[in-house]
């Protein structure tokens, strides 16, 4: 019986991530009774949603075998531009479109660096991250913008029924990305590119186009994340993306999407973002000191990725036997 369960867990794509999530939820509710309250759960979901929105498009990039390290500062740049435009009195729909357009441009830029110039994505997008940070500083002139228009902030703090708007945006994005990655030829090409770039080439796939598309998707979700974040903080400054940094990558990888490409999916990223946020939440609730916080988070990330790699190799052995 145990063996059967074990086999099932090994074979199913998200079983390990889901078990870790369940484990973390149970653990958290044991550690602190205030975890399983409706209020706290909604808070957790709202916190998760920003991290998830930022990570969601990265899932597509990682599936191609790439990486995008420019997301946090891209989101910040979008936030800064959005804030400036709002101050100028530009209407909200136009501002949102402009923000998303900035994301698209950054995505195309990254896509060209990786797809056409063939730069290693790690370094190329790290460079982009510095560039966009620089642009944000110029846009903001070193200032912080507070008090955005009242009808803008609900994007970050508003509710529809009991659900916070960022959570709804995250749910919609999950659906859209699931559709794109699993149900379209573009999605197939993205998986193909990541599982074997050579075979993609020898199958006459348009790899450059697919690579650029993946980075553009990532740029768009970074922009959406930036807009939501700005609305939630009701403020914008050039460094607002700092705290997210590599958490964005961690959420994707913890969800079981392989950094080598070709394996994983958007639901993994949902779970990755949830686990990461819950742990941060619990640590906050029980009042652990901030150095211990980052240590604990680091350990959890390492454990979860190890578990993923471990089950993957077990699974391969299983399928060979």
């Amino acid at each position: 019986m145990m063996k059967k369960i074990g086999t099932y867990l090994l074979q199913s794509k998200y079983a390990i991530s889901v078990s870790v999530l369940v484990f973390v939820v149970i653990g958290s509710s044991l550690i602190t009774s205030s975890f399983l309250t409706a209020d706290n759960l909604i808070t957790v979901l709202r916190q998760t949603s920003v991290l998830f929105i930022l990570s969601s498009g990265l899932t597509a990039v990682v599936l191609t075998g790439g990486i995008d390290l420019s997301i946090n500062n891209s989101a910040a740049l979008v936030g800064c531009i959005v804030a400036q435009l709002l101050l100028l009195g530009v209407s909200i729909p136009v501002v949102i479109l402009a923000g998303i357009l900035v994301g698209v441009v950054i995505g195309i830029f990254n896509g060209l660096l990786v797809g056409i110039l063939k730069l290693p994505p790690f370094v190329a997008t790290y460079g982009t991250n510095m560039v966009v940070l620089g642009i944000s500083t110029i846009v903001m002139q070193g200032k912080v913008i507070y008090d955005l228009p009242r009808n803008f902030t609900p994007i970050g703090v508003g509710y529809v029924g009991i659900l916070p708007i960022p959570v709804i945006i995250a749910i919609v994005l999950t659906g859209v990305l699931y559709f794109v990655l699993q149900k379209t030829t573009l999605g197939r090409n993205i998986y193909m590119l990541g599982s074997n770039a050579y075979a993609a080439k020898y199958s006459a796939a348009k790899s450059v186009r697919d690579t650029i598309t993946a980075y553009v998707i990532c740029g768009i979700t970074a922009a959406i994340g930036g807009i939501v974040l700005t609305a939630r903080l009701n403020a914008a400054d050039a460094n607002m993306g700092n705290s997210y940094g590599l958490q964005i990558v961690a959420a994707v990888v913890m969800g079981g999407t392989s950094l080598l490409g070709g394996e994983g999916g958007i639901f993994g990223t949902v779970i990755g973002a949830l686990v990461l946020t819950i742990i941060l939440n619990v640590i906050n609730v029980i009042g652990v000191s901030s150095y211990l916080q980052s240590m604990a988070v680091g350990i959890v990330i390492i454990l979860m990725v190890w578990l993923d790699v471990f089950t993957r190799s077990k699974r391969e052995k299983l399928s060979r036997a």
Binding site: R188, N189, S195, N196, A199, A200, K201, G262
Partner: peptide, 19 residues
């Protein structure tokens, strides 16, 4: 190396060119 995405299914590989 060049012909197949080994981890992908037979079905996926079959339509890789004709998607």
């Amino acid at each position: 190396r060049y012909g197949l995405a080994l981890k992908s299914s037979i079905a996926w590989n079959t339509v890789a060119v004709s998607l």
